[in-house]
Design a binder for these strands. Structure first.
Lengths: 343, 343
DNA sequence: CAGCCGATTAAGATCGATTGCACAAGGAGG
DNA sequence: CCTCCTTGTGCAATCGATCTTAATCGGCTG
């Protein structure tokens, strides 16, 4: 038995059906099928079945310059925020016959550049970037090359690129107003990397909402974590506690940062929510399983994926839509990590 | 400004360097570079840089029949077990210049078949399957087509396919012996889908270890969940409790099933671990954050990914390794969900 | 029955890179 | 000085499908 049975090509089908390869091509392609006599179509399709034809998308891609492949960059696959988004994207893309090529970058800019180069060499039809920074020069090159790009969960400060994400201003507002309505006045904020829009925008929203609630922002109650993960969140929050300013609640830039806060509070035997209320952001998987279950802001992540994919497909399809930012509405999920301040 | 600047091809580079395209090809390819005069190599590389050449891997793939692309199927991206495995795979593959195409199947066999067809059409160089069932006919077709396949986290009953996973027999043994050493004698088991090797093998190991600990297996203490997720775990465990047989501890087929048990126990006001000890499997992300922190079996998931990728690369490279099953050693992580039985 | 028209199908170029083979130039050896 | 190699480069075929252009076939009209 041969290790590898010779691949059958369109020529084999054509020979079997006693037609020219170009005719076989038209017969098998739904676009051009109407240009071939029905009887011939049937003969070609039968021939394709008997010889076991499987079209070679590499060859097709070379000729048509369309690969039906979309590339996606995410900063951290192990952040439970992303899997639902990716799922939404895959589901939407597969409807149109597109395949997703997913790459994890760990936030490493150099790696991102090299992955983008490789994807560009593979001639992906479009890119979904969940790794964008507020300033992300590589996007301009991509745009100049005519590559379709949609940002997911992030925006850039100054670039005409479509994006899809949760409405961060509204989301943080929900968190702040929830705490204020419980009676909190001294509220701290632990944010993430301000290089990312998620870092800066959420912070800005926090400051804005405090003000509109008539609370003055105390810079001593703001800490910044280098990354959106538990450990950086823990050290930022520990440092904030060590400053000594009193506060009764903390808004975390995302759920992982909130978990970091949990760790520090447990270490220092401060009870949540009795001595400290904590609000997260994203409502990641298991947010309801933590001790205590985390009050957080729910983002329709699967839908974000779906809309992002859709926007990209439209852009590829040539619909001349102006770059737009789609913001999906978040909602507050109250669990057991928030309560009225004790004093 | 043109929307899309014309792609530069090897011919453009050749023209710029005043050599024949074939020479340019050889100069840019490290394999064949030695066949070109160093001065010419330098000229070609300079030309490539000035015209901004980016090789077209589609065209290359057509000619060489190698795409440097690996496909992977996973049943459930939102199961935190998988992201670390995927990360290990990506890291290893990228070392050799390979790209991973990831697809989520939700355990849907039809979808798996169609995705595999699409990947086969895209001429992936190899496949990593985390979706294999004990009986998974599609693998035989792939093998017959000469496609390199490595199974991840699963095995098949009867197929000469290489696989990489944690050592399930040892892992379940650690769980059982831990409970026995705490004094438990009546131990229940909540397993997952026996169509998957992870379902059957862990159950078989559970039975075997009970016996070698001198405990007779009570079929009334075994329940099977349809999928490896919380809800099926919860209903299976609830049904098991409803049978009325007394037991003091439960081994869950994975951590998500254990979480399902948690939910039922909380609902029925049974305390973990005071009234019921629970052991999970996999040590997924956040297993230490649950209430109570889950005692479980840790699997070196990242390493599983790395080894699987490596095995596949070797197989592609033509190293004629016989199909082998690599089993990585698990370890017991004792947290707060297990304690001696009360009575 | 010649001629024309629309509908099908065949021919062959093409996408961009790789590769076996031919060939020229230059050096070594007799 | 001539033959035989070696080395470096050019030539042209090739991978498999698509697509433009040209040829062919039937039927229909006058």
């Amino acid at each position: 038995m041969p290790l590898e049975r010779r691949r059958v090509s369109l020529a084999d089908v054509a020979a079997e059906a006693r037609v020219h390869p170009s005719t076989a091509s038209r017969a098998l392609n739904s676009e051009t099928q109407s240009r071939v006599r029905p009887a011939t179509v049937a003969r070609v399709m039968a021939a394709a079945r008997t010889v076991g034809y499987r079209p070679n998308s590499i060859a097709r891609g070379l000729r048509t310059n369309r690969t039906y492949t979309i590339g996606m960059l995410i900063p951290d696959l192990t952040n439970p925020l992303f899997p639902p988004i990716v799922k939404g994207i895959e589901d939407r893309l597969s409807q149109d016959g597109y395949t997703l090529v997913l790459a994890n970058t760990d936030g490493d800019l150099e790696r991102e550049t090299s992955i983008l180069a490789s994807m560009s060499a593979r001639r992906v039809d479009g890119l979904l970037l969940a790794t964008a920074r507020r300033d992300y020069p590589v996007v301009h090159e991509l745009l100049a090359d005519g590559v379709r790009v949609v940002l997911v969960n992030r925006t850039m400060d100054d670039a005409p690129v479509p994006s899809v994400m949760g409405d961060e201003h509204v989301g943080i507002g929900l968190a702040v107003k929830h705490l204020v309505s419980l009676g909190h006045r001294r509220i701290a904020y632990v944010g993430g990397d301000p290089e990312a829009s998620t870092g800066l925008v959420r912070y800005q929203a926090f400051a804005a909402w405090l003000q509109s609630e008539g609370i003055e922002l105390d810079p001593g109650l703001v800490a910044v974590a280098a990354r959106f993960r538990e450990e950086p969140g823990a050290s930022a929050f520990a440092e904030l506690l060590d400053r000594g300013s009193a506060f009764t609640a903390v808004v975390a830039g995302n759920d992982l940062l909130a978990l970091g806060c949990y760790d520090v509070l447990r270490e220092r035997s401060l009870e949540v929510p009795a001595q400290m209320s904590v609000v997260g952001y994203n409502d990641i998987l298991f947010a309801d399983k933590f001790a205590p279950p985390l009050t957080t802001i729910r983002i329709p992540n699967y839908q974000i994926g779906v809309r992002a994919a859709q926007l990209l497909l439209e852009s590829i399809g040539g619909t001349d839509t102006p770059p737009m930012a789609i913001r999906l509405a978040p909602s507050l999920v109250v669990r057991a990590s928030t309560a009225p301040p004790r004093d």
